[in-house]
Design a protein around this nucleic acid. Structure first.
Length: 968
RNA sequence: GCUGAAGUGGUGGAAUUGGUAGACACGUUGGACUUAAAAUCCAAUGGACAUUAGUCCGUGCGGGUUCAAGUCCCGCCUUCAGUACCA
């Protein structure tokens, strides 16, 4: 009987589906284990061989854990809202739901044929109303919450209202908008309902605010910071501009500190934690207020004969800065404001006005991209105004410069040229003073920024102090003056949550008097309305503006036709005028909304009463192992941690981190094939001969190239007509292609489809080969040619059990060698899986099969447990042989074979004998010999004596079981 | 610039954490089987000299520690990834 993988694989995939072999129960006596993959976005192109890499690894681990006796949850689903389906709809008019459904069917077929042990009864789709009902529900929960810095957690908004009613907001330490105004309890109670609502919005964890957003005109939508790469949109590479819009935001900044602290409690990769730390960007320092000197302004004002009241206004100007180096405050010789800073126009003196305005205009013209690309050129302008040093009271010139960013900190810095290179360069360029405040440091060439080596000089009350002491003292003195305080700044911004798109979750929100109202959770889901076109409306509203049935009837609590409410700007109608029917929110939620709690929904995915039951979350707790790509470091993985912490605060989940351990799988790259066309001809020259010609490189389909880089010319001619009448210059009768490793992409013709691999070699070969390619975390090129190695391993494995006469396995008593091979393999494979080095265990299997074949092993006692080891990696062949051995049912639930050390223990070992560290020969010695006895035996040996030539060795080093080194 | 990871045969990659470097696989070469090809099997395969046994050199470069270094320490170089005027 031959190894007919296609037949075997189809048979067992059917068996697993029919018997629900991998269905996980929410109740079990077994310990639980939760293995999660990042669910895919079902794109129209389907899977290529790079996609399943992480899924194969997690599947091996999940299967291993089942063998270990765990109740394993290993679900899969689809992140099925998103832009490509919507753009396809714009182009073709086909509803995104249909596109999505078709794509999911393709994905499912492709996933199924690789033989994953997913529990498909728990599948989720983010675009399914039954699922996004709960995304909407979480949104409502966030709306009804605020963040209390005193308790460091989210609390109910109703509790906040109680505090407002009894004591106002003066004592509240909350995460809220910056420009909040203080009010008393009395004032609160006298506010109108609308005023109250608008104040509460400034505290809510999701809030509506006019914010400056990243607007992408080409995509017609706003983007979050993590969706922009190098100043252009991540998707499509379109330019992005800053624009003010009223948008929903998530107050993730409230959780900045907890998101940072939490990283220490989870077993995620170092680089991933590092990117999150950078993204959160905590910096500790002080905020300092510099008073703008009025006299200068007054003087210039007098010169212009303007009203004297101006001086009073000028006097109140303060420039607030954030610094991480309060200890260098005596080194300040100028201040720099971002050109966009609001004070610029107010403090600029008439003399400087023209210059400053010209500069602002010039910088405004530069795009974000130009500004980033060109950081070397130093530009700026003097405002003519001066600020007063808080301690020395000396006047400090105020400049503007585009090296100061409006979006970070306060958009203004105190410039210390001796301690910061950018300030130094700026000062040098404009001829500003560079006072030295560091003891024994030469600053004639560069600034000195080493905190740890700092000793302060020329600085009044902090002379001689180090960084730490000086910082503390300066902050204290600033506080005494009322001109500053210790402050921690975070780079993390609140996340914009509105998208001007169709294919996303609708908000459960309607508007009364312009104020957002939540729809009661019991009426969820609010389903996405039908629209005729998926583009924004003529008036520039989001696509939902095209919906005719998109108003909320508060009498019947359902979505109704919006005939009565003409959608216009928010807040233009009053309550009475349309009988309780109000406009619904026209934006939809961003892509990350649906993926921020899906891991918890898998625990109880069909629950219509709650996002998940208490029993389910109490049983499954959190994800034990999460495998996915590192590209989600500052997106999905940060937002999910944020929502999880919120869910924890609300008492819905038991852990404030959702995944204990996370592994980033690397990417599988393509190996493109290149042919060389001699310029201006239709002649193609083989790689080895191209040296003498002037050639153009053309990429061709990699699937036509064999393991020796030889292209199949017939296939090439069939592939594209331009090769039909081409001439080929061969070397040794072959056309050899060039190779280039790059991202797998249609445009390079280097995409390899797993369907083809499965047809030609089988799913087990695919699974083994993907693991065999190299360490999981690493980026590595795919080359189909190499798959023959693992494929012939499977054939050898088959032959170990079955030959032309049928089953070879007998009840023969295993030999010592058989047992040694088996137990060595058990040990190694177990270690490998637990260390996630799946690549080396494939080698281990190959060695085991080679050894057992050489030993002519046919003992069931050896070959049966061997199958269990292999079944995590190559489940189909393992099942088939398991059945051939006469077993009933699936191998998936059979216990992992027990390792028995005694089979590995040997009585003697070949010791390497080295002289001065250089190996000379080996010597067989019993393992139970003492160190001294070994030493004596080695010295007495003939060969040793030969090497020593009569000399006495200085030292003999014996490492039991390892080596004997004679030092002489 | 900063942060992180990594440099080992023609290629992908092993190396029990300081103990015989190059496991396993691809590729290449030679051989067996075959009319032939495919498939399969066997042998060789880091380099140089010797082709009988052997010797020397070899893990990016230069030092160091050690009886012993791919592994540890110091100083460089290169590549990849992330991030970037963050005050």
């Amino acid at each position: 009987m031959k190894y007919n993988f296609n037949e075997i694989e189809a048979k067992w995939q059917k068996y697993w589906a029919e018997n629900q072999t991998f269905k996980a129960e929410n109740k079990s006596d077994k310990p639980k284990y939760y293995v999660l993959d990042m669910f895919p976005y079902p794109s129209g192109a389907g899977l290529h061989v790079g996609h399943p890499l992480g899924y194969i690894a997690s599947d091996i681990y999940a299967r291993y854990k089942r063998h270990q006796g765990f109740n394993v949850l290993h679900p899969q689903g689809y992140d099925s809202f998103g832009l490509p389906a919507e753009q396809y709809a714009i182009q073709t008019g086909q509803h995104p739901a249909i596109t999505t459904k078709e794509n999911i069917a393709t994905y499912r077929r492709q996933l199924d044929q690789i033989g994953f042990s997913f529990d498909w009864s728990r599948e989720v789709r983010t675009s399914d109303p039954k699922y996004y009902k709960w995304t909407q529900w979480i949104f409502i929960q966030l709306f009804e919450s605020w963040f209390n810095y005193d308790t460091n957690k989210a609390e109910a908004i109703s509790a906040l209202i109680k505090i407002f009613e009894t004591e106002g907001n003066a004592n509240i330490n909350a995460a809220c908008d910056d420009d909040i105004e203080l009010f008393t309890a009395e004032a609160w109670n006298n506010f109108s309902s609308k005023e109250q609502q608008s104040i509460l919005l400034q505290y809510r964890l999701t809030y509506l605010a006019e914010t400056e957003v990243n607007w992408c005109p080409a995509l017609g939508t706003v983007l979050a910071n993590d969706e922009i790469v190098n100043g252009v949109s991540e998707r499509g590479g379109h330019p992005v501009v800053r624009k003010k819009m009223t948008q929903w935001s998530m107050r993730i900044s409230a959780y900045a500190e907890r998101l940072l602290q939490g990283l220490d409690t989870i077993d995620w990769t170092g680089s991933l934690k590092e990117s999150q730390r950078n993204w959160i960007g905590k910096s500790v320092g002080a905020s300092v207020a510099f008073n703008v000197i009025a006299s200068e302004a007054k003087q210039s004002a007098n010169n212009e004969n303007t009203d004297v009241t101006l001086s009073a206004v000028e006097e109140s100007h303060k420039i607030e800065v954030f610094t991480t180096r309060p200890d260098t405050i005596f080194g300040v010789s100028f201040m720099t404001l971002a050109p966009e800073h609001e004070l610029v126009s107010k403090i600029t003196t008439p003399d400087q006005k023209a210059e400053v305005e010209a500069y602002i205009e010039a910088t405004a013209k530069r795009s974000e991209r130009d500004r980033m690309a060109d950081v070397k050129t130093i530009t700026g302008a003097f405002t003519g105004a001066y600020a007063e040093h808080p301690f020395t009271k000396a006047p400090i010139p105020i400049w503007i410069g585009d090296y100061v960013l409006a979006g970070y900190g306060t958009g203004a810095v105190m410039s210390v040229p001796c301690g910061d290179q950018r300030d130094y360069d700026f000062a040098k360029h404009f001829g500003i003073d560079i006072p030295n405040i560091f003891e024994g440091i030469d600053i004639s060439e560069v600034a000195f920024a080493d905190k740890d080596k700092t000793v302060i000089a020329n600085s009044d009350f902090i002379n001689g102090m180090n960084y730490k002491k000086a910082t503390k003292r300066v902050i204290y003195e600033l506080e005494q003056l009322g001109q500053g305080e210790g402050k921690t700044n975070y780079r993390l911004r609140d996340a914009v949550f509105s998208r001007q798109r169709y294919w996303g979750e609708p908000f459960p929100v309607y508007y009364v008097n312009g104020m957002p109202q939540m729809i009661d959770a019991k009426y969820l889901p609010i389903e996405l309305p039908e629209v005729e076109k998926y583009l924004p409306t003529e008036t520039g509203e989001p696509p939902l503006g095209n919906a005719t049935v998109w108003a909320w009837d508060t009498n019947t609590n359902q979505v109704v036709s919006n005939d009565l409410v003409i959608p216009t700007e928010r807040g233009t109608r009053d309550e009475e005028s349309h009988n309780g029917i109000y406009p619904l929110e026209l934006n939809t939620m961003p892509g990350w909304a649906g993926s921020s709690q899906y891991f918890n929904r898998y625990m109880d995915p069909n629950n219509d009463e709650a996002i998940f039951s208490k029993e389910a979350i109490d049983y499954w707790q959190q994800v034990d192992l999460y495998i996915g790509g590192s590209e989600h470091a500052t997106g999905h993985l940060l937002y999910s941690r944020f929502w999880q912490k919120f869910m924890f605060d609300k008492g819905y989940v038991n852990h404030d981190e959702f995944a204990k351990k996370l592994i980033n799988q690397g990417m599988i790259l393509g190996t493109s094939a290149i042919v060389y066309r001699i310029s201006g001809t239709n002649k193609y020259v083989s790689k080895g001969l191209k040296g003498t010609y002037d050639v153009e490189e053309l990429r061709v389909d990699v699937n036509m190239v064999n393991a020796s880089d030889e292209i199949n010319i017939e296939a090439l001619q069939k592939w594209q007509p331009q090769f039909n009448d081409a001439e080929f210059i061969l070397e040794e009768g072959k056309y050899i292609v060039g190779r280039e490793v790059e991202k797998m992409s249609k445009r390079w013709f280097n995409v390899v489809n797993p369907d083809d691999i499965v047809t030609d070699y089988g799913a087990d070969s695919l699974r083994l080969y993907e693991m065999f390619l190299g360490p999981l975390e690493q980026y590595k090129p795919w080359n189909t040619a190499g798959i023959t190695g693992v494929h012939s391993f499977l054939k050898k494995l088959w032959k170990l059990y079955i030959d032309d006469n049928g089953l070879k396995v007998t009840d023969a008593i295993p030999t010592k060698d058989n047992l040694k091979t088996l137990h060595k393999t058990i040990k190694k494979v177990q270690e490998d899986i637990e260390n996630f080095s799946f690549n080396t265990s494939v080698s281990t299997f190959m060695i085991a099969v080679n050894e057992l074949t050489a030993q002519k092993c046919n003992s069931k006692e050896i070959l049966e447990p061997l199958l269990v080891l292999i079944s995590s990696y190559a489940p189909h062949i393992a099942e088939e042989l398991w059945e051939a051995l006469g077993n009933e049912g699936s191998i998936a639930t059979v216990p992992f074979p027990e390792f028995n050390e005694s089979h590995l223990v040997e009585s003697s070992k070949n010791y390497p004998i080295s002289f001065n560290g250089k190996m000379r020969f080996t010597m067989e010695l019993p393992l139970d010999m003492s160190k001294d006895a070994i030493e004596a035996a080695v010295l007495a040996n003939e060969k040793t004596q030969e090497q020593l030539q009569g000399r006495t060795p200085k030292k003999v080093i014996v490492v039991p079981g390892k080596i004997v080194n004679i030092v002489g």
